[in-house]
Simulated scan of single mutants.
Amino acid sequence: MISIATWNINSVRLRMPIVARFLQEEAPDVLCLQEIKCQEHQFPYEAFAELGYTHTAVHGQKGYHGVATVSRVPLTEFSRHDWQDNGEARHVGVELGGAGKGMILENVYIPAGGDEPDREKNPKFGQKLDFFERMTRWADKVDRPTLIVGDFNVAPLESDVWNHKQLLKVVSHTPIEVETLQRFKDAHGWTDIGREHIRDPERYYSWWSYRSKDWRENDRGRRLDHMWASPDLAAQSTRHWLLEDARSWEKPSDHIPLITEFDL
């Protein structure tokens, strides 16, 4: 049995107290973090080691983006893909367990895409779509049991957002993003583990804007964070849950953690 969590933490050094709380209370075997917002030498390795997470793979950069995977079980860094095609630190892949035998775990932070869902008016939106296309070409060649997790910055289903009609022209829920994400899904036949366990149309959000003062009462959430697995691996997932309370912790991220348990 192994449990794997993913969380866009929005600055790991600023939010290390709530990361520590999460690890103490939920105790996943592996935690994938996005938006760590620090260089590799600035990452709080010691704080994680004190909590028992002594195995790390960190791909960071100054001030922005960055991903890190921390683990209580041995891991080997497997890959770093530049799907953004500009050198930004948005991906790190690891292999859990023995080399050549273990699960491949891909940790990714997909660009948000700016405010205007138009490639001509907003280059950031085009970069996001191109990022997905590069990921799709990669996924087409995946030939080992793989779990890809992280902040995908797309809420694909109507039930993944607080108001489908109002958000159809809002970046993260536009038809072109949903179609682009579907092509990525089809390229490897990924299983959306979250929606295997929390079935559509059940409410399922992982992000609430900082602009919403009472996020719980207004509940204007979106499901931007995902855990997708190769079909055989997905069939071994026994439990999936999310920690909404973390959105109310002191100095919270605007995202919450997702956790999946596998019977491997």
Score class of each variant (00 low, 15 high):
F131W: 15
E88G: 03
E88Q: 11
G114P: 08
A99Y: 10
A89I: 06
M135Y: 12
V108K: 02
K128I: 08
S79I: 01
A99W: 09
D118N: 15
G87Q: 01
A112K: 13
Q84R: 03
K101S: 09
D82N: 01
N86C: 07
W83V: 00
E120W: 01
E116M: 12
G113T: 04
E88P: 00
P123K: 05
G87L: 00
W83K: 00
R134K: 15
G126Q: 10
D115E: 14
P123T: 07
F125M: 11
E116H: 10
D115Q: 13
D85E: 13
A99K: 15
G87F: 04
H91P: 04
G102E: 12
T136K: 07
N122A: 00
A112C: 13
L129W: 09
M135I: 13
R80C: 05
L105W: 10
G126P: 10
E88W: 02
A89S: 11
R119I: 15
H81R: 12
G102L: 08
P111F: 10
G97Y: 10
G126E: 14
R80Y: 01
L129A: 13
K128T: 11
N122F: 02
A112E: 04
P111A: 08
E120M: 07
M135P: 07
R119S: 11
P123Y: 04
K128H: 13
T136V: 04
D82F: 06
K101R: 11
K101G: 01
V94S: 01
V94C: 02
E120G: 03
G97T: 12
D130M: 15
G98S: 13
P117Q: 10
N86I: 06
E133F: 12
E95H: 08
K128P: 10
R119Y: 05
G97C: 07
L129N: 13
I104A: 02
N86L: 02
G100F: 11
R137Y: 13
H91W: 03
G100K: 08
E116V: 15
I110G: 03
H81T: 01
